[in-house]
């Protein structure tokens, strides 16, 4: 068997993707920033950085920090804001040869709705990923994603404003039972789920007796979080998503094709790579090659046959 005989294609909601590999929001820029290192045409889909209504400066530095087998970040959603995104980045995204998914964030429901409506109206946008990990200003800063009622209100409002848009809801892992927000998102109209965003953490400089990140806390990502991410993907797949027919975009510590296969076996239809792109951007293309090799080695022809096939 050669790699011509194997099919990496997956059906991700309405999108027929050539392979399951996607960028993770916030680690791959707005459009073509990675093109000197990655053949963007060989991605399954491209996911942008989180976009908010107003431009955001982001947090004071230091914004990132390396930890054992991973990193922490407290970027503070620094981004150019909706207007500049439409004006400057959409024309670039129009040239993208793979489906484009725009990640949307906000502080209040109306803000999400406004951004979602305007972005989804662009021809080149194939879907939205709602980042519900952001603090909700109206509810005193608690994350939308940790309260099922808030998730329903948020996802329901965006669904109403954009009835035909392919809507992915990106869940935060900072909850006791991940199936609760997963169910809430699906009930409110999500077409797919992304799991997971980063785990809340704290890094301390013992000499200075101060937090290392200017924001105090930050999100942990990279190989350190992979076991937790796999567990959450598997639980949501088995207990919620499989029966609901909702595909999962799995992420958290993926560095190579074996990691990607693990997520697919756990129940993910697509996979995103975040932290590792910062280290080895070429991995986005290496994973494609590695997935084919895995299928050949296991005498399989279709990657999609492996989704959720954890014994």
């Amino acid at each position: 068997m050669t790699d011509k005989n194997v099919d990496l294609g997956v059906q991700f909601g309405p999108l027929k993707l050539a392979n399951p590999i996607m960028t993770a929001s916030g680690t791959c820029g707005y459009a073509f920033e990675l093109r000197d290192f990655v053949d963007m045409d060989r991605l399954g889909a491209y996911i942008t950085k989180s976009i908010t209504l107003e431009p955001r400066m982001g947090n004071k530095p230091q914004r990132t920090y390396e930890v054992a087998s991973g990193m922490m970040n407290a970027i503070g959603l620094a981004n150019v804001g909706l207007d500049k995104f439409i004006e400057e980045k959409i024309p670039l995204l129009e040239k993208m040869n793979v489906p484009v998914i725009v990640n949307v964030a906000g502080k209040e429901v109306p803000e999400y709705v406004k951004v979602a409506k305007e972005v989804s109206a662009q021809d080149c946008v194939a879907g939205l990923e709602l980042n519900v990990s952001c603090p909700n200003v109206k509810e005193g800063g608690i994350s939308f994603g940790t309260d099922p009622k808030l998730i329903q209100e948020l996802v329901g409002s965006v669904r109403q404003a954009c009835p035909d848009t392919f809507l992915i809801v990106k869940l935060t892992p900072n909850v006791t039972d991940i199936t609760v927000p997963a169910r809430a998102a699906i009930d409110a109209g999500a077409n797919a789920l992304s799991l997971i965003n980063t785990f809340m953490g704290l890094a301390i400089d013992a000499e200075k007796r101060k937090p290392i990140l200017a924001n105090r806390t930050g999100g942990v990502s990279g190989p350190a979080v992979k076991p937790m991410a796999l567990h959450m993907v598997n639980r949501v797949y088995n207990e919620v998503a499989k029966d609901a027919g909702i595909p999962i975009l799995g992420m958290g510590g993926i560095t190579n094709a074996t990691d990607a296969i693990e997520f697919i076996l756990a129940g993910a239809t697509g996979i995103s790579v975040g932290t590792n792109v910062l280290i080895n951007p070429g991995c986005l293309n290496e994973i494609e090659v590695g997935l084919k090799e895995y299928l050949i080695r296991h005498h399989e022809t279709k990657l999609s046959d492996l989704i959720g096939k954890l014994k």
Binding site: G26, T27, Q62, R63, T64, M71, I75, V277, P281
Partner: peptide, 17 residues
Amino acid sequence: EAYMACGIGVCQSCAIE
């Protein structure tokens, strides 16, 4: 200098005021 993660402009780590 700034604390960097990617070094290639995709992660917003290395902000300088």
